[in-house]
């Protein structure tokens, strides 16, 4: 499990998904939060971007579904229970009704989001701005309006 970030995440700030994905899955009407995270961190689980575009190279295809990445995390929990020593992990935001911490599963509700926590900031793909942005965890927690919106951490999948 990676506990330190060896990638220069800052380089992606302001980038559109087309700068990261060589498989032509760039539609702005689709959701690219898990797609961004997976290209940066090299996640290749479940359904991938090539499956959506039908183009490109399978070996460069990345995961695109939040719930499929969520269940790969060795350890998950509410953000408030994250160890202070954890400086690099995944950050999920959704309603608590979509998450079962005991079974480490997340329902495929469309109001769910993922980003990368690194050195106090969460880097994620804003689907309204169509680019990578960074926020502090308090601002990230307001990604969706509504009751029971909760931020979860997930340690890095192997």
């Amino acid at each position: 499990m990676a506990t330190t970030c060896k990638i220069n995440i800052k380089q992606y700030l302001g980038s559109n998904i087309s700068a990261l994905c060589s498989n032509s899955y760039h539609k702005s009407t689709d959701n690219h939060c898990a797609h961004f995270v997976s290209h940066v961190l090299g996640f290749r689980y479940g359904f991938k971007c090539k499956g959506m575009s039908g183009k490109g190279n399978a070996s460069e295809s990345a995961s695109i579904r939040v719930h499929e990445v969520f269940r790969k995390c060795p350890e998950i929990g509410e953000w408030s229970s994250k160890k202070a020593s954890t400086k690099f992990c995944l950050a999920f935001v959704t309603s608590s009704s979509n998450v079962n911490l005991k079974t480490k599963t997340m329902r495929n509700h469309p109001k769910k989001h993922i980003g990368i926590f690194h050195s106090g900031k969460i880097y994620h793909y804003s689907n309204s701005k169509n680019k990578v942005v960074k926020q502090d965890p308090a601002a990230y927690a307001k990604h969706y309006s509504g009751k029971n919106i909760t931020v979860y951490y997930g340690t890095m999948p192997k």
Binding site: K27, T29, D30, N31, N108, P110, K111, H113, S126, N127, S128, H143, Y144
Partner: peptide, 12 residues
């Protein structure tokens, strides 16, 4: 099926 409402942006 598509929906877009701010950051809620999806197609399944």
């Amino acid at each position: 099926i598509y929906r877009k409402n701010g950051e809620e942006n999806w197609g399944w």
